[in-house]
Design a protein around this nucleic acid. Sequence first.
DNA 1: TCCTCTCATCTAAACGATTAGAACTGCCAC
DNA 2: GTGGCAGTTCTAATCGTTTAGATGAGAGGA
Lengths: 327, 327
Amino acid sequence: MAVTLADVARRSGTSTAVVSYVMNNGPRPVAPATRERVLAAAAELGYRPNRIARALRAGTTGVVGLVLADASNPYFAALARSVERALERRDTLMMTGNAGYLPGRQQHMVERFLAAQVDGLIVVSADGGADVAAQAVAAGVPSAYVHHRPVPGQAPLVSADNDVAVRAAVEHLRGHGHRRIAFLSGPHDAGPVAERRDAWQRAASSSGPEPLLLRCDYSREAAARLTAELIAGGTMPRALIAATDEQAIGVLAAASAAGLPIPGRLALMSCDGTPDSAYTAPALSVMEQPLDAMAEQAVALLLDRAPASASLPAAHLVARRSCGCDA
Amino acid sequence: MAVTLADVARRSGTSTAVVSYVMNNGPRPVAPATRERVLAAAAELGYRPNRIARALRAGTTGVVGLVLADASNPYFAALARSVERALERRDTLMMTGNAGYLPGRQQHMVERFLAAQVDGLIVVSADGGADVAAQAVAAGVPSAYVHHRPVPGQAPLVSADNDVAVRAAVEHLRGHGHRRIAFLSGPHDAGPVAERRDAWQRAASSSGPEPLLLRCDYSREAAARLTAELIAGGTMPRALIAATDEQAIGVLAAASAAGLPIPGRLALMSCDGTPDSAYTAPALSVMEQPLDAMAEQAVALLLDRAPASASLPAAHLVARRSCGCDA
DNA sequence: TCCTCTCATCTAAACGATTAGAACTGCCAC
DNA sequence: GTGGCAGTTCTAATCGTTTAGATGAGAGGA
């Protein structure tokens, strides 16, 4: 059915080698007249090189595996798009898999991607998993964690500096007159969320009363539930930094349902800066992660075997309505 | 570096054929003792079959390509996850690509996936593109459109019946006492949005005054802009059905910014039913699309070469706050 | 004329898995 | 003892590309 190199060779009266040389501007030159004939034959037959055969011969597939905790989460979805763009510049395709926050499924996806001979593996991990990238290392496949590494392991981690940005967020809320600034963290935070929590802890307790640390799952639902309880119990803080946009959106939903005005009675900020955050009601003030830069660095790490440069821009503050700004 | 069949054969003192038979419970039987030896050798060496080699030989890769208009759109993201689940049941991997609503890029992605020898192609298309699946048909690769087909073409379309559901939505708003029910459509609607618009047109004009048809891009931003204008001009309808959740969320954002209470001054519904819609403020009432069923049918069409059964459930109504319900 | 050198092209061996066909072992019946 | 048969296992071709080594044609120098 499919047109092969041999077909083109026959049609143009040459050999498969010449056709290959033409197709790749091969390692050897081809006479101009011959090149024309080959190109014409390929066009007529509608030849499309078989990447599988090439992959077998070359030992490289031009495919990278991306394991996500959850592609429905706008933060991860945005990250995935950034990765796709970075890969496209290198003419590389992307396989994706959702681990659904389950370490077992994450392991399973990695296993399948390795069997598919991916050239590299990017893991945007869920909390609490094992060092899945260890399998990749064992298989000789370069790998990198982005955003979060569950345990210190052999694969590099690409993550922006959260300290600067969270400090800026705390200062910004102080600028709106808030003394007690609470933080909504994950259930048992680690990785970037822990960094953010630490940065907040240092910045928020540097002056003024002891700040409040809240915890809930990384979901809109959990944050909404927690918020509803706090409002009902009369213990809702007046200023809050949520670790993730998803949580912040949950807070927003519950506050709206309970009639708690934002930013009037609650100044809210969060730490991802997904596209969604610009279209909540009110619009979320966020510290926006440099997703494109993170993706580019991860891909460079895998494909160009570049050293992990530490020169990643920090997340930067985008002030909208929810913190008390007018914009 | 990698362990091959030949390595396992050498280690276990057999031939590659026997090892292959063992690995696949091959087309021929193997003596129990030999099977043990092979299995042991494979385990010791950490053998992992090379899917690329298998693919070249078998002519089938176990990979399906999914071309999305925009994976950051929660509706498409949810659809992608449904497709992934359907594929997983058939032990098939998924390559994804974003076309970014650009017909040219869509074409390009299809081209690249075909070069990668995908076993099938699912296109969740943007408006206005050519019949990209025609390339797949030409290459002998089964393909299917999901949700939307830009032009009538050779590939089947999987899409749920919108008529029943939109009619239900109109009835539901009538139940809340609304006589004039407006509809927010796309810029030049086609496919499912056109079906929804038609269903609304029929249902809404069946009794009462002529209903209002609005149009804007399928983005939060565009819907927000339009809404702001309508509110400023005093022409905002009291009841509105948005074609997509994204648009509805934009309406919500602008209404909130302008202080227009929902559902008090505007009863709002929309037509996707993404996970996001449950966590807006107020929560969106939606007609929820049967994404799992759509994905399953598309995958069955490609991989099981099942006939396109018309037995797809229609989108069904989920009533939340934004329409005026208490829930 | 013969040798060398360059340029263009062809031949054929990989890559790793699958699987027909051949080959070898015992075993049983005649 | 020979033929046949079943049960195992081996050999080798195949999928489509890539690319090193062999081949051949023509130009130029001696």
